[in-house]
Nucleic acid binder design. Structure first.
Lengths: 127, 127
DNA sequence: TTGACATTACGAAATCCTTCGTAGTAACCT
DNA sequence: AGGTTACTACGAAGGATTTCGTAATGTCAA
């Protein structure tokens, strides 16, 4: 499979674990997730199997306990999700997106500064 | 119904129309959407009925052709969607969200300027 | 009034998502 | 070898989503 697909909510949760931990077994993913919420072992297994067939993860079957790894780097997937929502919800307006993202919460001075820095950098690369 | 729920992808599409047009009949919504993609009349009707029971829209049954209206203003719903994704995908980091949203496309000078203006304004209101 | 037409109500199929139970299989220990 | 444990594979239930067809009902003109 070379075609990445859009992950569902549950799949995204698993991808988060794989991005954080790197290649992991079902047991490891399950332990990480079930620390936060109850979820059956075979549920995680099944999800990883589905994700394998969708091309969202790759599976190393060398060892008895298969090792799963996210197919796409976190950056790429997150970018796709952000772009998709930008289009679907905000008609492609980044300003609107940021306005709403900021409105719902309290951003620290540091974060605002970071956002400014990102804008500078973006503009510099643009030309 | 006073509890708003999270709209699905199709429901969001309909909300877009209602936000743009204001209160509309099934026929009007259907015409607007089917200008872009084929979709049966009763499909739109059914969706609006479901959305009514979910509390996403309100229905005025005065006239024979019922008139539907978005329950929540666009701003509020968009804010919720943005906040939800911010949390789920970007662990609450607005910078990360914007970074990825910008990365996938070309933003005009005007848009960058607008983003800076928003940051200024946000900071001003904060203190 | 009756036929044509617009509209709503309802049911249901097809697909996807999420979750888990059961069965099979391999490995390991005594 | 036999029993226990750790895995994977598979099927399937239950719910949500999306889509549409058909039936029922109201409206209006001839």
């Amino acid at each position: 499979m070379t075609n990445p697909q859009k992950p569902t909510v549950s799949e995204l949760e698993i991808l988060h674990v794989l991005w954080e931990r790197g290649p992991s077994t079902v047991r490891e993913v399950h332990e990480t997730i079930s620390a936060k919420k109850p979820l059956g072992y075979t549920t995680v297994l099944k999800l990883l199997q589905i994700m394998t067939s969708k091309g969202l993860v790759k599976r190393d079957e060398q060892e008895r306990a298969h090792v799963y790894e996210a197919w796409q780097p976190a950056e790429k997937t997150k970018r796709q999700i952000a772009a998709d929502m930008l289009q679907r919800v905000f008609d492609g307006s980044a300003s609107e997106l940021m306005l709403h993202a900021l409105a719902e919460r309290r951003s620290s001075k540091q974060e605002i500064a970071e956002l400014r820095r990102l804008l500078d950098e973006y503009e510099r690369k643009q030309r």
